[in-house]
Structure formats: C-alpha cells, structure tokens
Computed example of a mutant assay.
Amino acid sequence: MTCHYVEAGIGKPLVLLHGFTGSSAAWDAIVPHFTQHFRVICLDLPGHGRTPAPSDPARGALPLVAGDIAALLHNLEATPAYLLGYSMGARLALGIALLHPHVVRSLILESGSPGLATEAERAARRAQDEALATRIEQYGIEAFVDEWERLPLWASQRQAPEDMRQRLRAQRLRNTPAELAASLRSMGTGAQPSFWDDLPRLSVPTLAITGALDEKFTAIARDMCARCPMMTHWIIEGAGHATHLERPAEFVQRVIDFIAAHG
C-alpha cells in the first residue's frame, strides 16, 4: 500500500503524520515555517485524505502500515528522516521508529502514546472503536464530526480563533464514513500492539510534546520518558491535545530546536 503525499522545501527530510480525522492538509498552517529548513513530506494515512483504507482490514494494521511508510521513504530517498507524528500519527511514528529504526533520524511525538498496556484494555477499546465505527457508518460524517468535536479532549480548542476551528471542521468533514470506520478498526488504539515494553530499546533521539491542559497525554508522556532513556518531554502551557494548532509558534520552535540539537 502506498500513501498519498505532498512535499515542499529542500534539505533533510521531515515527515509529518497527522491524527485521526486529519490529512496532509492538517499541517498547512505550519508547513511554511518548516520548509525554510527541511524537505517536508506530509502523508495521507490510510482512510484519510487521498489514501484509501485497504480492502482487507488486516492489511491496515499499524505494523504493516509502518512497513509501507518505511518502504515509501526509501523510494523517495528520504531516509533517515526526522519523523513527527500527532496523536494517531504519533502512535504510528513510534511504531516506525521501533520496527524500522534505520529510516528514522530523530522522532517527535505530539500527544502520542505507546498504545494500551494490557489485552483487557485493548479489548475494551476495540469494542468502543467498533461501536463508534458503526455509528459513523449509520449516521454519516456530519453527525460524527458533531459528536467528535464535543469530546472533552477538544475543550481547549473552543477558545481558539473561529477561522481556525472552521478550517479544522471543514477538513474533518472531507472524510468519508466508510474510510474513517475502516481506520478505527485497523489502526485504532485498541487494534495496535502495545509498545510500552519496547520503549527501552528505542534507539533514536525522541521528543514528546504535550499540552499542559491535556492531562491524560501529559501523564502518558511522563511515563514514557521514565522508561525510555532516549526520550525527553516538553510541555506547552495553555494548550490541549493539538499543540501545533493551539500554540503553533512555540510548537514549531521547539521542533526546530530539538532537530538542531540532535540532527
């Protein structure tokens, strides 16, 4: 499977992996700041943007998608790359770094996790994701986006500028129910393997970025750092889950500074 991608800029490659309901366009507001320094490659992950979900759900599993992206970066002569992932994209980026470390120069995880630690937790989450996937298919994209935007995870964005929130909503609405449902079933948090026990062997410099208002993922990042000598943690004050949207200037500067220090 090949992911659709767009690229701009010159220099060492910086690969951006978006979150659930996003696409390569999710990074549009900050890409111009990165192209001054890097060859920026933004991917559409399976079930999003212009990359369809595989017809076989098993083929969309995170370890297989990680291998597909590693192969794509080889074909693009974009290895080793600086790899930056947000939320779902951060889980995938971590998987790429663990399973294909030769393609990664350094790793930035924005609001990411290594998955769920126990099979019981994963089974419960798979049931939740299946229920959500079914609702998306039954009620359509607009009803789903309305439900999604009411989640407490996005509470900090309700004070964001109206134009930013409208652009984000329009991007979410460009997804299709069948593709989002397939993404949940194949690469949701419950479907992926746990990487908690693999963190000590992470071999590339890694930065975890979280928003101070996102207490859940800030706690996860602290736990990850306690297990992984290669990882450091930066907390952005006044931001929630999507720090790159809520505090873009600080987010961009922190990424650039980290890459410069570990390039």
Rank of each mutant, 00 (worst) to 15 (best):
28 D>Y: 05
29 A>I: 07
30 I>L: 06
32 P>H: 05
32 P>L: 03
33 H>S: 14
34 F>L: 06
34 F>M: 05
36 Q>N: 09
37 H>N: 09
37 H>C: 05
39 R>H: 15
39 R>V: 07
40 V>I: 01
41 I>G: 04
41 I>D: 03
42 C>K: 14
42 C>F: 08
43 L>Y: 08
43 L>K: 09
43 L>F: 12
43 L>I: 07
44 D>R: 02
45 L>T: 05
46 P>R: 09
47 G>N: 01
47 G>T: 00
48 H>P: 00
48 H>Q: 03
49 G>C: 05
49 G>Y: 01
49 G>M: 01
49 G>N: 00
50 R>V: 02
50 R>G: 03
53 A>V: 00
53 A>I: 00
53 A>P: 01
53 A>D: 07
54 P>K: 13
55 S>T: 15
55 S>R: 12
57 P>H: 14
58 A>C: 13
58 A>W: 11
60 G>F: 06
62 L>R: 09
62 L>Q: 11
63 P>A: 08
64 L>A: 08
64 L>K: 09
64 L>F: 10
65 V>H: 05
65 V>G: 06
65 V>L: 11
66 A>C: 07
67 G>E: 09
67 G>V: 04
68 D>M: 11
68 D>Q: 12
71 A>Q: 14
71 A>P: 01
72 L>R: 10
73 L>G: 08
73 L>D: 11
73 L>Q: 05
75 N>P: 02
75 N>E: 14
75 N>R: 15
75 N>M: 10
75 N>C: 13
75 N>Y: 09
76 L>S: 03
77 E>C: 09
77 E>P: 00
79 T>A: 06
79 T>R: 06
80 P>T: 09
80 P>G: 08
81 A>H: 08
81 A>C: 15
81 A>M: 11
